[in-house]
Design a protein around this nucleic acid. Sequence first.
DNA 1: TATTGTTATACTCTATAACTATA
DNA 2: TATAGTTATAGAGTATAACAATA
Lengths: 166, 166
Amino acid sequence: MPHPAKTVSKAADPSVQTVDTSYLESLMGYNARRASLAIISEFLAQMSVYGLRPVDFSVLSLITHNPGITSRQLCVALGLLPPNLVGLVNSLQGRELILRRPHPHDGRAMGLHLSAKGKKMMRDAEQTAAELERNATSALNPTENRQLMSLLKKIYQKPSGKGATA
Amino acid sequence: MPHPAKTVSKAADPSVQTVDTSYLESLMGYNARRASLAIISEFLAQMSVYGLRPVDFSVLSLITHNPGITSRQLCVALGLLPPNLVGLVNSLQGRELILRRPHPHDGRAMGLHLSAKGKKMMRDAEQTAAELERNATSALNPTENRQLMSLLKKIYQKPSGKGATA
DNA sequence: TATTGTTATACTCTATAACTATA
DNA sequence: TATAGTTATAGAGTATAACAATA
């Protein structure tokens, strides 16, 4: 990995004037993490009005587009551990955004559904998410946007690619 | 944001057969996080032989390329909070990978430097990091690799782009 | 016997307040 | 007065073990 000097330093002087981060910036992992955090910080700011963290939004979105989904399925799809989903689902139920119904074919499981209140909120929240994404990617033209989306999928859609964690 | 149906479901049946994640996959934030996690998991696996977490590697890399850097400068460059860096630096010093020298111009600060042992280890670690990155991005050809790197930088190198967090 | 959902709990990561010594 | 480094501590996020109910 090359790392062309990006900053001017006084060479032999041990006291650093300007920090040279060019090596780290030559690593894909570093850039991917920075970009991911930049979008997430935008998300945190814009979605706070709904009281939704990224993981809450992900769960509610999957319920929205998969009515009747079980906790187990949510865990697999989002890379969550079952014990950590319990409190989250309880919280969303306490806020009357979702409700649990008996699963039609499995007495152990509960199907998760959006309430009317939850549906209304998610219509707004998904629209806000779309606006937020346009803002976070405003430095990209439409072609670059499609390219980036495609390249990111190539990175994680591989045999070694495990589940997400959020 | 469009989200073309990617999975076949039995429509009105509330019990979900296959989870439809196409909406989430239409969001740049979701894809960026998944890609970032895929590379980090590769990093965790390959760098465990050195006993280095991503944040340890980042700190050691900045010291490598900025001998004499201070804790404060590390915090700013990596988005760490000072109290959380103390234990990390103490640990690296305890492992005899780095050493603290008095700062030449500021009696409050200490300049951080790699020990001979630290230099040897980082030569190996940075080579491993390069191999690991090639593996993590093996689905991309050289042109795509450059494109992705460039597009990621465009995302986080904006006025609103805050510091990293690790 | 295996799986869904749950409780309890521990470990890591991140954040805030307050202190010291130097500038 | 402001800054570098530190301590103590609180809060999230993430992890494992073990259990009851159902398959």
